[in-house]
Amino acid sequence: MKFVFSIVFFWFGYFAFSQEQVTFYFDNDKFELNKVEAAKLQKWIAENTTSKILSITGSTDEVGTSGYNDTLSQKRVSYIFKQVNGKINIRPDFKSISLGEKGATSTNKAENRKAIIHYLLEKDLAKENEILGIKEAVEVIIPENATLEEKVKLSKVGTKIVLKNINFYQNTFATMPESQATLYDLLFIMQNNQNLKIEIQGHICCIDKDHRNLSTDRAKQIKRFLVYNGIPQHRIQTKGFGVSQPIYPIPEASEEQAAANRRVEIEILSK
């Protein structure tokens, strides 16, 4: 588990309701619990084997430098994490929050030397996403025979769409005549959707490595066409994936598989 220590104040917004928390206090300048608090932690672990930890927040008093206190609160969070790891379920996007002396909210210094575990009880796990304000992703099914305009309209940010009938002369980034219809379809869509931003992604086939960076050059060629026809550059990004994301294993078993791997896609960045 990799810790990401940062001051994430917005995280607390997730815990506006239906969350639990337990606090453990540290002696001055210590990042390990004393016997009393350690026993309290072990008791809590034993009573919460079916709970789920959301985050651990560490803080210190205001004695010492800010840098020292930041490190000390990080160590306190790490200590607590090591005690609970493997014993209690932890969310995959677990947050490790180090507030240092910024977490000193009490006039009593001893009350600021602490680590807080935020967690959900077993009875609340069924509504975990609701409690955390996480909306379920809704899958959008885009018909294969839909037009490019319809596909873009139905798509969400992150959707990838293959540009059909975009072909290049062999070993070049020059488009063949049959590509014009799709290019102008894409231009029309970009002209009529001013907020649409895309990344054009190139893929090639049949070889073990894109030595000439041809996939990138082909993506850039599509961008050149759009920019030449008035689409602002900032709305178009480009990226070449070479043969790193084939639809079919390389070497392909047929020309149909090679053609499927040899493609240009657009990814919707914003709409």
Score class of each variant (00 low, 15 high):
N213S: 12
N213E: 13
T71M: 03
M176Q: 15
K135E: 12
A174P: 03
I236S: 00
K223Q: 14
S244E: 14
E37C: 00
S59P: 09
T147H: 04
A39C: 00
R262D: 15
I116P: 14
V84W: 04
D70M: 13
G100H: 06
K239W: 05
Y184H: 05
T175E: 09
R262M: 09
E149D: 14
A137K: 11
R224F: 14
S6D: 04
N89Y: 01
V84E: 04
F188N: 15
K43G: 13
I90D: 12
K109I: 11
N193Y: 12
E128A: 05
D61I: 01
N85A: 06
Y169M: 05
M1A: 11
N165D: 06
E122L: 11
V36L: 07
N112V: 04
L226F: 11
N171P: 09
I166C: 01
I7T: 01
I117W: 04
I204K: 00
M176E: 15
G158I: 05
V227R: 05
D61F: 02
V63E: 14
V227H: 11
V227A: 08
A104N: 07
I247K: 05
I116L: 02
T182D: 10
P249Q: 04
G242Q: 00
Q83V: 01
F15S: 03
F26Y: 13
E267P: 09
K114R: 04
L163R: 07
Y228R: 08
Q221T: 04
N28R: 11
C206A: 04
N69Q: 09
E101Q: 14
L269H: 10
A219P: 00
K87C: 10
K109F: 08
D29I: 12
S73Y: 10
V84R: 02
V138A: 14
K156C: 03
N171D: 15
T238I: 08
R212L: 15
A259H: 09
K239G: 06
Y248N: 15
Q201N: 14
I250N: 12
D217K: 07
Q201E: 15
N229C: 10
S179K: 00
N112H: 05
S59I: 02
N85M: 05
V152E: 07
E128W: 01
K164P: 11
P92T: 06
F10N: 08
A16Y: 12
T175G: 02
L214M: 15
E265L: 11
E267L: 10
L226I: 14
G202N: 03
T65F: 03
F225L: 10
